[in-house]
Design a protein around this nucleic acid. Structure first.
Length: 109
DNA sequence: GCAATGACTGGAG
DNA sequence: CCTCCAGCCATTG
């Protein structure tokens, strides 16, 4: 498969994330059968902003539940607001209770 | 084609 | 919990 198709697969999985839940780059990559493609998942997110239909990119965090993502402004503050709007608490750029809010795509796919 | 880069990860100190 | 490091791979100069 080419990289473009991989990005589409990433968007597909991200769109499956339930409201108020989050997942990690590695988890998505692994769900697509490419455990070493975590960085490519992040690269795909650069296209998420202009993808149609839009993908909830802000529900993707790193393996520690940290808001490693950034919006066009270069900060993760907007991401935090979006997450809090869904009932997720953020403390020091980390998702509170991340272990329980974590959604494993492998369970759904 | 090689070297650097990055929305990552897991292990070691 | 934090930092550093090696492994990872598409993209860019």
């Amino acid at each position: 498969m080419d990289t473009e198709a991989f990005y589409e697969q990433v968007f597909e999985v991200v769109r499956l994330i339930p409201r108020g839940r989050v997942t990690s780059y590695g988890a998505v990559a692994k769900a697509l059968g490419a455990p070493n493609y975590s960085r490519m998942v992040g690269r795909a997110m650069q296209f998420a902003g202009k993808a149609k239909p839009p993908v909830p990119w802000y529900r993707l965090v790193n393996s520690s539940g940290t808001l490693s993502a950034r919006d066009q402004s270069g900060s993760a503050h907007r991401m935090q607001e979006l997450l809090e709007n869904e009932g997720i608490e953020i403390k020091n750029d980390r998702i509170v209770n991340f272990k329980k809010l974590f959604w494993d795509p492998l369970i759904e796919i």
